[in-house]
Amino acid sequence: MIELEEMKKTWDELSAELANQKKLTDAIILKMAHEKSKSSLDKLVRVETMGGMAMAIILVLGIMVFVANGTLDTWQLILCALCSAAIFIFSGILSYDFIEKMKKMNILEDSLEDTKKHYNDFQKAHGLYRKVGAYTVLPTMIFFIPVVLKVFIKMDIFANFSEAKTKLLEVVFFSVLLSVPMLFIMFRYYKKNIKTTSEAIKDAGVE
């Protein structure tokens, strides 16, 4: 007949036996490092994919307006639309490349050499993406704002600049007002997740 006291005695003996056992946990910790980098990378992939989708929607809408409505009726506006589209497509390609580089990273399954290579590729892609992002903010505004004004307010700043000046300033003001905090939040978000990824890579002894 087993009573609680007897169960307790058996448990104590069992615990003493188990205390002698030492299991390796290093492999599990490596798995944790992998999980840590994976979750921060997944967040970046999600944001990038959402950004890519938003860009694709803008492009499709832009093409529809351009082709179907003939709203962009002067060569200056067409040039602005084409330049905007070129910037979006280029950013989209870079974004896709960045996503692919992120997806390739797998600390757990990759060999050390592969992890190192994938991490370097990821860092390079991130550096380029950040640089291009910073350099294209102004050109995007210059090319995209006239298109936005024409499409949404039916105002051609090239045909009647003095009349469109106030609206242009308003759009620029609100763009800056919205984009600065957004860029700040995005920058912090990216910085945090890239830092976590780098830490995980460092934890795995790659750097």
């Binding site: 290093d26 490596l30 490092a33 050390l112 795995a204 002894g205 790659v206």
Partner: peptide, 12 residues
């Protein structure tokens, strides 16, 4: 960098 070194660095 060997696997052992990798673990060693992790431990540090």
């Amino acid at each position: 960098m060997t696997t052992n070194l990798m673990y060693l660095k992790l431990q540090t």
